[in-house]
Every structure is written in structure tokens, then in C-alpha cells.
Amino acid sequence: MPSENKLDMATIVASSIHDIKNSLSIVLNSAEKLSENTQKFTAEDLHSLKELRYESRRLNNNFVQLLALYKLENGLYFANIDNHDVHDLLEEVVFENQETLALKGISIAMDFAGSIEWFYDRELMLGILNTMINNAYRYAKSKIALSARECEDGLFIYINDDGRGYPQRMLGQLSQAMISIDFITGNTGLGLHFASAVMALHNNAGRHGDVQLNNGGALGGALVTLFLPR
């Protein structure tokens, strides 16, 4: 049961976020509208538009993470795990990000056909995937690919790009303990911390979800693997 104080703080945070999200919605919508008609834009205008779209998306992802982590820490969050279509999930991530990425000359594709149903907290998974795409935005040269594969133990979701990949010291399976303060510094670290915390929430029959960082894959750059147990 939440103590009165925790709930009060949660209410304050929630109503501030509500306000901020409304502003962000309007900012993003205005940016989308600007993007519809860019013929008369100078290169500088285009650059500003690109920054505007990317940074407001980043702000949004940060809010999602911040609030989720705050609630997890305070025992105010319980994963809302239900069965969803993985194809729909990845498709939404493509829809959500393709325009912003296109402005920077990056294409995003889904290398996955058919339909797999799986159990997860859809909103949290969207939060992770959007965050991962936002990371890839900074490092990818021209391509990002999303895919998924079912195996005996569970489901793997991959986010691959054609950038220079993660530094050697970051590779391997992420665990909460490994993510030091030093590691968290910077947006990438916070995003990974969030991803690892959320994946750990996804457990079934004694097995937990996790996040793995690798380099390579079909595109040769960073390869993030999210694992959801069966």
C-alpha cells in the first residue's frame, strides 16, 4: 500500500508530467505540420526542424523513463502484462520514428513478417524500443533494422544499426549492478538502465527478461537484444 506521502508526490509528478506532455504534444504536432511543407526551407531551416523533432522526442522518452523508474523505485508500478502481437509492436515503433529519422537520412525497416503473439507490458516495451531507436539515431549512418525471433526459451527482439557500435567495455548482458553511476551518465546509460529494469520485470515461470549489447548483426553496427522469457 502506498504511504500518503508517496502518493502525494506521485500525484504532483503525474500532474506536472500531464502538463508537460500536453505541451510536448503540441510542439511535436507543430513540428510534424512544418515537415509537411519543406520545399521552401533553407538547409539551416531543415537542420532546425530536425533538431526540434529529435530533441522533443528525446524529451518525451526521458519523461517516460523518469516516471517509470521513479514508480518502480517506490513500489508504485506493477507491470501490466498482457498478450499482444509483436508485429504490431514493431510496426508502431517504425511509425513513431520514421519521419524523425528520415530527416537525418536514416531509414528504419522491419525485418519481420508474420505474426507472433507474446506477453509483455506494451507501453513499457514501446518505451524501451523508442529509447533504443533514439540512441541509434545518434550513431547510425543510414539504416536501422528491427526484427524478432521466437525460440524455445522465449522471444528475442533485435535493434540493429550501421553505426560504429558500442565500446568494448559495454558489451554483454546488462545487469542492474553493472550499470554504475559512471555508466548512467549521459542519455545512453540512462536509457539502458531503464531497459534493463523493465526487462527484469518481465518474468514468467521463474525466468526473467534481459538486455544484451553486441556489435555486428546484418548491419554491422550496434545490436541490442531484448529477451522475453516464454
Binding site: K21, N22, V64, A68, Y77, F78, N80, E123, L126, G127
Partner: peptide
Amino acid sequence: AENTSLMVMGALEYQPDEYLSKPVN
């Protein structure tokens, strides 16, 4: 506005057909 408010809502007796979180793409 916040995806995580669903955690309490997800456990309530009356459920909507769908949730959407802002900003809505």
C-alpha cells in the same frame, strides 16, 4: 499523459478498450 498511470488503471474493474499515451503520433 503518462504511460505508467496505467499500472493502477490496469487493475481496475472497468477497463477501456484501448490506452493511448500522449503525445499521440
